[in-house]
Write a protein that binds this DNA or RNA. Structure first.
Lengths: 139, 139
DNA sequence: GTTCTTGCAAAATATTTGCAAGACG
DNA sequence: CGTCTTGCAAATATTTTGCAAGAAC
């Protein structure tokens, strides 16, 4: 398999780019919306769900992907934009309660807050729930 | 059963205060942290889980409680502070990745963002994940 | 009686782990 | 050989629904 963007990403984060991991990374890069484990399972017929699950967890640990709780009940995953994958890099998400799709507002950064004394932050989730333009038009 | 704060809350939102609903509301009011369905099931031995589930959903629909996705994998519920239960009323939450507890930062309002054209907002979730003071001290 | 609410059971969905076989170096 | 990765199977956990009995009005 060729060396692509995925491999560079993984190596930079200290993750060995196995063929399965490359498959997962590519599938996520090709997706428009953040994807769930089940969606990835459908996209990657050759891989077992548990393998995808383990790759995703590895990616989350190594800050290669974000896990997003969008309130749909199922966790969504998304490749980090930048090499950093820092909090400043995280953007807001929108979950449409009608069509059940999750949108990325890549241009809208998560506004930061001051945490009370003693709390330390690893990540933030900012999710707006409501109705997307398409579904609003259908009414 | 006596008429309490719970009943007023429910009636104001157009929900008939049945005894089970009062039980759920009281349990939630007595809790410090936001509670999960399973926690409520433990607190309310007399009620069936599905009944609690349905009460919670009813409450969420009628804006009596907020549903919070804290990244623990299980949904948490919390009684709305104000009668409004509007977006301005929502506060931020903190999930400790060590002790797996969810904290309410009642004094820290969720910073608002401008949504792109066409999107309409029903609710917001702002959850910070990290380490709480107690767990940080243990290290 | 009619409608709403509840409990029981079970289905549907999601997440997570054990273990042995295979890949890699 | 030793370590890491993978697939299969199965266990857990969580959310959700069908249905009939019971309560409320």
């Amino acid at each position: 398999m060729e060396t692509g963007t995925e491999n560079i990403l993984m190596e930079a984060k200290g993750v060995k780019p196995t063929s399965n991991r490359i498959l997962v990374a590519r599938a996520m890069l090709s997706a428009i919306h953040p994807v769930s484990l089940t969606e990835l399972e459908t996209m990657l017929m050759t891989m077992d769900k548990s393998s995808i699950f383990r790759v995703l967890n590895l990616f989350v640990e190594h800050h290669i992907v974000h896990a997003i709780e969008d309130g749909s009940g199922t966790l969504k995953y998304e490749i980090c934009d930048s090499q950093e994958c820092s909090i400043a890099d995280m953007h807001t998400h929108f979950y449409c309660e009608k069509c059940h799709k999750t949108f990325c507002f890549k241009t809208i950064q998560i506004p930061e807050i001051d945490l009370p004394e003693g709390f330390s932050m690893n990540s933030v989730n900012y999710v707006v729930k409501g109705i997307c333009p398409k579904c609003a038009a259908k009414e």
